[in-house]
Design a protein around this nucleic acid. Sequence first.
DNA 1: GACGATCTGCACGTGATCTGCACATCCTGT
DNA 2: ACAGGATGTGCAGATCACGTGCAGATCGTC
Lengths: 225, 225
Amino acid sequence: MPRTVVVIEDEDSIAGAVEARLRSEGFRVEVAYDGLAGIELCEKVHPDLVVLDLMLPGLDGLEVCRRIQRNRPVPVLMLTARDSETDMLVGLAVGADDYMTKPFSPRELVARVHAILRRMERTLVFPGPKVRAGSVEIDPGARQVRNAGESVHLTPTEFDLLSWLVTHPGSVFTRDQLLAQVWGYTDGSGVRTVDSHVRALRRKLGADIVRTVHGVGYAFETITA
Amino acid sequence: MPRTVVVIEDEDSIAGAVEARLRSEGFRVEVAYDGLAGIELCEKVHPDLVVLDLMLPGLDGLEVCRRIQRNRPVPVLMLTARDSETDMLVGLAVGADDYMTKPFSPRELVARVHAILRRMERTLVFPGPKVRAGSVEIDPGARQVRNAGESVHLTPTEFDLLSWLVTHPGSVFTRDQLLAQVWGYTDGSGVRTVDSHVRALRRKLGADIVRTVHGVGYAFETITA
DNA sequence: GACGATCTGCACGTGATCTGCACATCCTGT
DNA sequence: ACAGGATGTGCAGATCACGTGCAGATCGTC
């Protein structure tokens, strides 16, 4: 599933360059040429990130930022013509996650987009929707887990592992795949370590939280009670 | 006791007009002609209201506004030469209570000064919204904190840090994110400084005020009773 | 200019967490 | 039922992150 980026920028040349570059990076890109259109676009496509020009015709970029955030928290990379510390502070105040001054290199923009998304993945800043699985309730934003109402403490690796499985219900993953996705390892070292963490999850959340697929790996499934 | 107003404005003609008009309304008026002098003046006379030009020689008006607010919360009426929504939003973001674009009529200025002071009086009588977290009570307007009824003194940084966390309950923030949001730093320097201030908060308000998310960062949580 | 408050950030101790072995147990195909 | 591979369990050393004490730098105030 490709990441979606909404670009709100009135200058054609910049909008086009940003769009092309991000698209070549594998993002799904939608462009709006003024603030109101941008807000509507965000409501429609629910982007993973917004690239927003501070100076827009009609509605001001800061106001656009606020309205977008109000509907649904989303990381914002703000573009500004002026290079001043004030702009940065103001941008951060209304909820932007990073900002760049024009002119900028498309390469740098791509780098920052990736940086923000990586940060968001690792640490969801905004309270996201909670995921339920049987009696287990997972809050990705708060990195908290409850079982039958009781708060359960998970270590970082345990939480990341559970999160990965939960966000891909029904899919079976080999130990190597889990090491790659959750641990970031590329070589096949330490496959048994996965077992240890699966075990920890079962001890804390019940044996049914993770299903063993003999000869293959592990999978998460919502219990259809 | 007459109300004191500090006017920070570099243009002689405007400063003179504002001063004369306000004085004729019974205010005690002090004038500074640049940002630094304005800040010092505020420290000296503790005004009930500040009229602040956005465009100042030397120190930027927004920076002046922040520093004044940091020492002691005071209503600010901001003057700006440009008539743009951006400026208003920017001004409000850094803590101004109202803004006017030049040219303006002295009569209107006086009206707004009275309006702001009236509003302030009301909010003194009817305190603003307070945030509660367990036995801890936070008053953002007054920058005051109470724990089990006892008034607790927080340093500026401590209060800013707590405020940010409190306004995003449940969300986990990395040290880098907190440095960016609370300190305004963009590079990753000084991550351990965050620890020190978290520690100060816990010493003053109890260990539970901030939750450590091992391997990630910190989060604030209302006590789930 | 001097004093106190505050901020910053290092160094160290401690506790939490990760890793992966060795052995026990379970599963599957025959 | 049996063999052989796969998975579960207990555990301990290594590693990593965090809390703490402290001291120098800086800021605000008188």
